[in-house]
């Protein structure tokens, strides 16, 4: 249980791992996530979305970017190593049905959680258009895997090193102006990208789902650390989400809450990059 069966470096600081856990593998559906912890006593619990599952092998696929201590430690584990604690699948699955034309927008590492959704949407008979965006060519992940389930694929990079030199919102806007316009947009990526995708589709009244990755401790509804404002209601990402109507999400509040511990984290783990940037100022 929880043994790493396969590890691959996808880009500079992005890794893919297949982890043996038949229970989660059997129950998981598109849109769900797991909580992982590397040390029983002092490790933190972090949520990671399930990117894929292999029933024959009894494994789930996780794709993660090194952004903090736990993801850094995880990236140093190798095939054969075991992950101390893995719990899931958590969250409500994506609602899959035949909507018609579905546009799936993935930014950076957000392509990973989008992957099972694209698969399921295609299998449900939708016309699927994928837009993958990243800062540069090296950071585009799962291009082939996504293409396999896409009727059309658009790639954007900030620096133009691959595909369009554009933000993902540009082709998204163009698609909204087409006739017929999309029946559904699903946008997963950094909060700021999801915010602007939602703003892009709002004037066209195209239903837009986003998948939120907030701070969590337990992931089962117990702590409420993941709460977000959705319209006039307060919702828990772990049990009510992680997917919500992007037009109702209070992204500014969510982004502020994501930075709750920034002060503390900077104080204790001041990374070299931060120091370097400060010196440059």
């Amino acid at each position: 249980m929880n043994k790493i069966l396969f590890k691959q470096k996808l880009s500079d600081n992005v890794y893919l791992m297949r982890i043996h856990n038949p229970l989660i593998c059997n129950e998981r559906k598109a849109g769900q996530f797991i909580i992982l912890q590397l040390d029983d006593d002092f490790g933190e619990r972090i949520p990671l979305t399930i990117a894929d599952a292999d029933e024959k092998e009894g494994s789930i696929t996780l794709i993660f970017q090194v952004v903090g201590k736990t993801t850094d430690e995880l990236s140093r584990l190798n095939e054969g190593d075991k992950i101390a604690n893995l719990a899931g699948p958590l969250g409500s699955p994506t609602h899959i049905e035949k909507f018609g034309r579905v546009v799936c927008v993935g930014g950076g590492i957000g392509v990973a959680p989008l992957h099972p959704i694209v698969q399921a949407m295609k299998k449900a008979g939708n016309e699927v258009i994928t837009i993958l965006g990243a800062r540069n060519k090296d950071l585009i992940i799962l291009e082939k895997e996504m293409a396999a389930y896409s009727d059309k694929q658009i790639i954007c990079t900030d620096d133009g090193s691959y595909g369009l030199k554009a933000l993902v919102t540009q082709p998204l806007k163009e698609l909204c102006e087409e006739n017929p316009k999309p029946d559904l947009v699903i946008a997963i990526g950094p909060p700021i990208m999801m915010k602007f995708c939602s703003e892009t589709t709002r004037p066209y009244k195209v239903k837009t789902l986003v998948s939120l990755n907030t701070i969590m401790v337990d992931g089962t509804g117990m702590c409420g650390g993941c709460r977000v404002n959705i319209g006039n209601e307060v919702k828990f990402v772990c049990v009510d989400g992680p997917e919500f109507d992007g037009h109702l999400v209070d992204f500014d509040n969510m982004i502020a809450r994501l930075n709750s511990y920034k002060k503390i984290e900077q104080k204790s783990h001041k990374c070299n990059l931060d120091k370097y940037l400060e010196q440059k100022k």
Partner: peptide, 19 residues
């Protein structure tokens, strides 16, 4: 939902369970 508002569950779980 401001930063710095916690449920007692979250505050105590961080301090106790998560050490």
């Amino acid at each position: 939902n401001l930063v710095g508002v916690f449920s007692a569950n979250e505050y105590l779980t961080r301090a106790n369970l998560m050490r």
